[in-house]
């Protein structure tokens, strides 16, 4: 016989807790876990938080690379910040950084990667393997090698000027920002291709067949079904490419040193130049702080997007 009065479902949750004590299925804290967390915490603090904190401090000092201020530097308050706010090169650098990371990183890489991934989707297996391998090679090449390839290909007598019939033109000098952007897009497109290829494999085939039976043509299937389903992947990939482009200091520094005339002077390059060419380490550190701020915001956006994507219902379960 079941006695209804003792039916646990009929009770309120509060009464249940009062009778049986704390819930067993709540996460419990064990002090010994602190010990196990300690090594990771020590590394994080020693190698990341302390250096970043110290560089924030340096941004408010008059530290120099050589000279008396290289040892006896002192805290100068907001002096560096006032200088920063009146520095025209800084504003131009911010603008160039935006053009570089958004134009080349977010937009360029995403479009190129998506086009390659879509083209590879129905390609022969052999073609797909060769092209994917090449794209991965382009992505894994060290920035120095990429810089040399694109430098050689775009300066006077390089393959691009010769191909287009102007062997004496120096494309890199005339269109510095365009060339470094192309080089960056070229090097990151392989990664984007891999991301999009994986996402395309998750687009349900039967759904596309259903659309074929509805007489939807290839363009309608792409724009109305595939791209909307890929939207979360496109956003995540674009943001990741933005972050990776932001850190791509080596490529630009090796190809143009931010020149000519500051045409490709993105923030990381400008910071390097301030510190190691003009020896103003304190000001360079402040520029570095701005970089940390911007990439911090981008990083938070990336994590947020990735989580939003995980929370979204899975498309292929429908």
């Amino acid at each position: 016989m079941v006695e209804l009065a003792n039916d646990p479902v009929a009770k309120t949750l509060g009464a249940l807790v009062a009778e049986n004590g704390a819930r067993l299925d709540k996460p419990r804290f064990s002090p010994s876990s602190l010990l196990l967390l300690f090594p990771a915490a020590a590394l994080l603090i020693g190698l990341f938080i302390y250096p970043v904190g110290y560089s924030v401090y340096l941004g408010f000092t008059n530290l120099q690379l050589i000279g008396p201020n290289s040892i006896h530097f002192r805290f100068t308050g907001l002096q560096n910040v006032y200088f920063l706010l009146s520095d025209h090169v800084f504003y131009r650098s911010i603008w160039l950084t935006l053009v570089f990371v958004v134009g080349s990183g977010a937009v360029g890489t995403t479009i190129l990667g998506l086009v390659i991934a879509l083209a590879l989707q129905s390609a022969l297996t052999s073609v797909r393997m060769v092209v994917t391998s090449l794209a991965i090679v382009a992505w894994t090449l060290p920035p120095a090698a990429i810089a040399i390839i694109w430098y050689a290909a775009t300066t006077q007598g390089g393959i691009f000027p010769v191909l287009f019939g102007y062997p004496h033109a120096d494309v890199l000098y005339d269109h510095a920002m365009l060339v470094v952007s192309l080089a960056n897009t070229w090097s990151l497109a392989g990664l984007a291709t891999i991301i999009f290829s994986a996402a395309l494999r998750n687009v349900p085939q039967e759904m596309l067949e259903a659309a074929k039976l509805e007489d939807a043509n290839a363009y309608q299937r792409l724009t109305r079904l595939v791209l909307p389903i890929l939207k979360p992947t496109i956003l995540t990939s674009a943001l990741l490419m933005t972050l990776l482009s932001f850190g791509n200091f080596t490529l630009i520094y090796l190809m143009t040193q931010g020149g000519p005339g500051g045409d490709s002077n993105i923030l990381p390059v400008y910071s390097y130049l301030q510190g190691f060419t003009f020896k103003k380490l304190g000001y360079a550190a402040l520029l570095g702080d701005v970089i940390v701020l911007i990439s911090g915001v981008l990083g938070i956006a990336y994590v947020w997007l990735a989580q939003a994507r995980r929370r979204a219902p899975k498309s292929n379960s429908v």
């Binding site: 759904m207 509805e214 939807a216 292929n316």
Partner: peptide, 27 residues
């Protein structure tokens, strides 16, 4: 010809209304 798939093959990002009107729209 119209077909109903085992997995239903619905368009997951569209509302029921858009799922129904997709065919007439693309045609």
């Amino acid at each position: 010809i119209a077909m109903v798939f085992q997995s239903y093959a619905l368009y997951p990002h569209m509302s029921v209304r858009s799922n129904l009107s997709f065919g007439p729209e693309v045609r």
